[in-house]
Design a protein around this nucleic acid. Structure first.
Lengths: 233, 233
DNA sequence: CGGGATTTTGATTCCAATCAAGTCCGGTGG
DNA sequence: CCACCGGACTTGATTGGAATCAAAATCCCG
């Protein structure tokens, strides 16, 4: 075997290893610190991170803001599969290519990792492989929870469960600032925007929530909300 | 460190390694051949393989028959997440414990692998780890497809898409023998059994399918079915 | 042959979609 | 500064599709 540039080769290996370690750190921890190959990128509200069927499948971590993954139907309607908040990892749900699109719900920043990098990382380091696998299983669990929501619940149950989700993520569990429009919520829950709006109003009339502004929700009756959002409708 | 039984230890290691290799083979290939720790088990129709919240999470492969994974709601209703046919792997969707229940739709045989064994296997052999990861991603993709079905489709669209799924799995793509009841189908699609029945009748009247018996469906108009089962309703 | 489970069919009700105006901001430019 | 504009949201009237309630028909298995 010829080794034309042994020194060069050694340097590259070392650089490669450092890149891997950087990426590993970034994946594992809630850090915006980006490695050589993964700068933090800003996207304006509504901008597309990647489209349906895009090659070059990358893995993303949300640093700030909210991202939605969705699919468009031929009649113009849309199904939103998930909202990804800061800290969430997404994009690896898609095998060879992205079967979903990802878009910024509001202004947001994300870091991205080349799929190749992630694969190299996983085969390199068992702990990271395990971590990635657990992310995948979490996504799967979420998708199943979502299916339950879509299949067996009334509009009231859907909205209540959705608000529960949002409240859990919020720092103040009694105050939710929605990043998304009524249409987004409707497309996530399999409803129309009118029904979403009406249901918010209904919850307000029942004194379960207050709506200081359209996008800000104060939960005034937690047990009441939980009861509606629990399993059945 | 004391080694009281060195010979015994060596034999155990060898046996352990053989078990791992057997399990690897069984996971990777469509084989009912079971390894030392994974006998093929028969379950009668309706029998429970494992319940919601069961500890001892195992991974299963269906050898013959059909298995459903589902959850029960407090009001007695049910959401079926998936039907698993022969060759399918399931059960690893659940992290530490099973959040779903699994039941035999009809008489069936499955092989099961202890979760510990699977984990050992994965950390032992990279190819197997990759394989398991790809199974997880496939499950995720299916769950998302299912969510789309539940969220944005009429009863007609749901049933058509469901029949498409079943036909694809069938050896004769024009003839589907359903293992499941109307109630099962309803719980999978988020409908009632009456609506499922009515929709079958409607498809028959449109001459898209024929129903020699309630459980046997002959597809007489493939393009027609595909059109209804395609994206929108 | 029963007899229970499964399936089909019918009548009615009800929830959410659709169609249709309004209202409420938040930003922009005169 | 304010008037205006457009997008987001709310509200109302009506329709429609699936759920629910109810009963018959059919199948399958002992």
């Amino acid at each position: 075997m010829a080794k034309p540039f042994p020194r060069r080769d050694r340097i590259d290996r070392r650089a490669h290893r450092r890149r891997l370690e950087d990426a590993m750190l970034a994946l594992r921890m809630d850090t915006a610190r980006s490695s050589t190959g993964a700068p933090a990128i800003r996207y304006g509200a509504g901008k597309e991170l990647f489209g349906e069927g895009a090659k070059a499948p990358d893995v993303f971590r949300v640093v700030t803001g909210v991202v939605r993954t969705c699919r468009f139907l031929s009649d113009g309607r849309r199904q939103i599969y998930a909202f990804h908040h800061s800290g969430d990892i997404f994009g690896f749900e898609t095998g060879g290519e992205h079967k979903l699109a990802a878009e910024a719900v509001c202004d947001c920043t994300v870091v991205s990792y080349r799929r190749k990098m992630v694969d190299a990382l996983a085969s390199h380091d068992e702990a990271t492989a395990t971590l990635l696998f657990s992310y995948a299983l979490q996504s799967l669990a979420k998708a199943q929870e979502h299916a339950l929501l879509l299949g067996r619940r009334s509009a009231l149950g859907k909205i209540a469960a959705f608000l529960g989700e949002q409240a859990d993520r919020s720092s103040d569990h009694l105050l939710v600032d929605l990043a998304m429009t009524r249409q987004d919520i409707a497309d996530y829950l399999g409803l129309t925007l009118e029904t979403v709006s009406r249901t918010f109003t209904a919850l307000e009339r029942k004194a379960i929530i207050a709506l200081p502004t359209a996008r800000r929700i104060r939960i005034t009756d937690v047990p009441g909300l939980r009861k509606l959002g629990a399993e059945p409708s």
